[in-house]
Design a binder for these strands. Structure first.
Lengths: 337, 337
DNA sequence: CTGTTAGCGCCTTCAT
DNA sequence: ATGAAGGCGCTAACAG
């Protein structure tokens, strides 16, 4: 934007026309002489004219930008979800600004401020594991900017959300381990700040309870998703008097790390220790042995979130609908269990 | 942006001040009464006032947005590179708009048009495997908008680029296979539209040549990076009268797929077939056996690209420098070779 | 079919 | 220390 930008005025001058006529020709307005239109379009092309969205956004009070905030970019989950969201957004004429909060609450706040300043028309977000206060998200609501959460959602805000049946998925995963004959099933859980952690934990508990497997609180370890800590918890678990014979992990990166550490300890998977993850990340099919996991339709989640958001944007603030969309998971049984 | 946006005028009215005074207070201009400033800042806070970047961008003819175009989001490479780039960009006060071309030439063109319309101050790009014409990128140069390529760079444009020593990396990888006693080393190469394909291929050839291993053109297969085709090529190779005893793959996803398919065929890795990849993706350490690969400092590549871009943005068009930064790779030997 | 005018929200002269 | 005026690039309303 440093060199001289070609504007409508440049074209108007060269063609001896008014700005408005040029503008009309460029925007496909019907009432403009075919000859004039042709001349304008030809010159615009020749001069590499490009509409300045900034001014249009300012004028129309609509930026056609959607902000997306995700906590990390490490697993294949969020990149995939973003891909789905962008697909729908760009079809609807929206650009996207992607932010990662890097699992950091302060960064998340900074991201929301930035999106606000950028005048986004809507926001799709998934929380950091640290987020317990939601004021920075509530500002959007107050300003009439719709927001949609997915995966890591804000429970206390009544806005659209896209989820999977975490409880169900966890339940089936654990029941599967029981059917495999496992009696001491541990759960490496997520932090209790995240609703998905709690839902998966509930699925775990209920699966044990209904199958009359005693619940041992020592086998339930909530952790902060810092992958390097997995080793410590695995050591702890295996040194119990009555160690687990299976672990259900909150997500695939965790399961993969358990697997690596278990192998290092000389444990046989699944004989000594069965492992089940959650999400069906790209890696989970490639490990040795391949990982049993609960798959979710990640791209579809992104698509759904974008669609719900665009619906909200097109609706008047007064009839916003807090639709909660729950997608299905599927248990994928591989050789780690 | 649908509800009423709080503007400087709103604040001015409530405080019985002029717009300019409020603006000055907000921007930290020195010549404003401390009392006034305090009142303005307090009210701004209370009203959730947020500066409208659109108008500022329009006025200053600088959007503070950097566009990033990458071909895919599937391997961990591009997400990681983007993370590095955003780190530097946001430190320097730039937002980023991320586009994926999805390995599609037309989409790449659409992306560049969009970034142009969004008035980005600069662009970081990595080409699709299909891109052979670069007019859509040259427009940026012509308009005085700097552009930096990384990984998949445009050879015919004299702009900053960030690369790794692909030739070196490939050379060392192949030499390593030779040292392991392999005699028939195949290369699953990338499409010749990409410079990195050719450089890695040259490294492969030279390593064989200098070590007096005959080059068999039948063992060199350029392909379009469509992962599903790997199976076909592996079948072809293994059915040769004199099949390969090792394969050097253009990248890790390819190597991982070769590994999976080889195992399906009952081949022992590395005894029957050694495999080496390129990039040290997250997965490559987790496969069975873990993959030998050439690692690159991906995040650092992203950082370097962003830094070079910001340097260009801050320089006058007349003294843009086409700095080419080459980062080091490192051979990581694991059990697949 | 074309031209004129006004203004989106902000900052920057220039004036007081 | 504060105000008033102008304009970034564009479109929409109102005139012909």
């Amino acid at each position: 934007m440093k060199g001289h930008q070609v504007t409508i005025i440049d074209i108007a001058r060269k063609l001896n026309l008014s700005k408005s006529t040029v503008s009309r020709a460029l925007t496909g307005h019907p009432s403009v002489h075919p000859e004039t239109r042709k001349a304008v379009l030809a010159l615009a092309e020749e001069m590499d004219y490009q509409r300045n969205m900034l001014s249009i956004s300012l004028l129309q009070r609509k930026s056609n930008i959607i902000g997306i905030i995700v906590p990390e970019f490490f697993s294949s989950y969020f990149p995939q979800a973003i891909t789905g969201a962008q697909e729908i957004a760009s079809q609807a004429g929206y650009n996207t600004i992607i932010c990662h909060s890097n699992e950091n609450y302060e960064t998340e706040i900074a991201n929301t401020k930035m999106l606000l300043a950028a005048q986004v028309d809507g926001v799709i977000a998934s929380l950091t594991k640290e987020t317990r206060n939601f004021d920075h998200f509530k500002i959007f609501e107050r300003k009439g900017i719709p927001i949609v959460f997915f995966n890591r959602v804000c429970e206390e805000m009544s806005v659209p959300k896209v989820l999977v049946d975490d409880y169900e998925g966890a339940y089936r995963a654990v029941e599967h381990l029981i059917q495999r004959g496992k009696k001491r099933i541990a759960h490496l859980a997520g932090p209790d700040s995240l609703a998905i952690s709690n839902k998966r934990l509930m699925g775990y508990r209920d699966a044990l309870r209904r199958n009359n497997v005693p619940i041992d609180e020592d086998l339930i370890i909530p952790y902060d998703l810092t992958i390097t800590k997995v080793k410590i918890y695995l050591n702890y678990l295996m040194q119990l008097d009555n160690p687990p014979d299976a672990i259900f992990a909150i997500n695939d990166p965790t399961a993969v790390e358990i697997l690596q550490q278990a192998k290092k300890k000389g444990l046989k998977v699944p004989e000594d220790l069965a492992i089940v993850g959650f999400s069906n990340d790209y890696v989970s099919a490639l490990t040795d042995p391949p990982l049993t996991t609960v798959s979710q339709p990640v791209k579809e989640i992104g698509r759904a979130a974008a669609q719900l958001l665009i619906d909200q944007i097109n609706r008047d603030v007064t009839d916003w609908k807090a639709i909660i969309k729950v997608l299905k998971t599927e248990l994928i049984v591989r050789q780690s269990s």
